[in-house]
């Protein structure tokens, strides 16, 4: 047991199984979840510890606000804890967790939209702090991370969540569509339009690669939408 997993409550029931000699950390996700469902009080904590950074990345990129991301992640992990017995063993545990985390994020966004008069706190310093402990990563990594977070905040949330899943988390269009509960064509459209909006926001990345900011033509950024851009044939364009 590691120092940041706290053992609380009575020992596991007999069905929860003994602690293996190599420890819980050696177990795969499916086994940890199975033991949790059987009553083991410790294994879900290990699952959280194993995946919390990845899920934090998804939440912070999708929501753009650290406080919101923390709340969403808490809701998501509680939901996962309680619904663990509904997990279908043929899927990856991480895919299941992603789905729960993304849905928790989208729920918060929907609730936020309902309370349109309730603006989110804007705290640049806090955002920078929560983008990761400064001592963990080189300055350029943190700077790049913050660039992405700030750029993602400026695009439509539907486009943002599609881009996070497909471009950043590596899900296929079909998998992302299943997680987001929409048609694959809609995911493709959201990704395309999201990239188009992100491009000028992150154009200095091109500069750092040896080109110049002018590599992205001003005309391409500024031209009015053409007929083609407003008549996408796949549907679901947003």
């Amino acid at each position: 047991m590691t120092s940041d997993i706290t053992r609380i409550g009575p020992p596991p029931s007999p069905g929860a199984g003994p602690v293996p000699p190599q420890g819980y950390e050696a177990m795969d996700d499916h086994e940890l979840l199975r033991l949790h469902v059987a009553g083991n009080p410790d294994t879900f904590g290990y699952l959280v510890k194993r995946h919390r950074d990845r899920m934090w990345a998804v939440a912070i990129r999708t929501l753009g606000e650290p406080e919101e991301a923390a709340d969403a992640l808490q809701e998501a992990f509680i939901s996962a804890f309680r619904r663990a017995d509904s997990f279908r063993g043929d899927a990856k545990v991480t895919t299941w967790l992603h789905r729960i985390v993304v849905n928790a994020c989208l729920d918060r966004i929907r609730r936020r939209q309902v309370r349109a008069a309730d603006p989110l706190p804007e705290d640049e310093d806090r955002a920078a702090e929560l983008a990761g402990p400064a001592e963990d990563d080189p300055a350029e990594v943190r700077e790049r991370r913050l660039d992405v977070l700030n750029a993602l905040k400026q695009i439509n949330v539907d486009q943002r969540s599609a881009l996070v899943l497909v471009d950043m988390e590596g899900y296929s269009i079909e998998e992302a569509a299943a997680i987001l509960g929409c048609a694959p064509g809609t995911v493709k459209s959201r990704c395309a339009r999201g990239r188009a909006k992100l491009l000028p926001l992150l154009r200095h990345w091109q500069t750092t690669r040896g080109g110049s900011a002018d590599d992205v033509p001003a005309k391409a950024r500024q031209t009015a939408p053409t007929a083609a851009a407003t008549s996408s044939g796949t549907g679901g364009t947003e």
Binding site: I8, D53, Q74
Partner: peptide
Amino acid sequence: ADEGRTDIPMPADVAEHLNAVIASES
């Protein structure tokens, strides 16, 4: 995709709070 391959470390206070919540659930 490159950026997505790097996790963002969860801040210590958020991780600590999450541990407490999961412990409470247990």
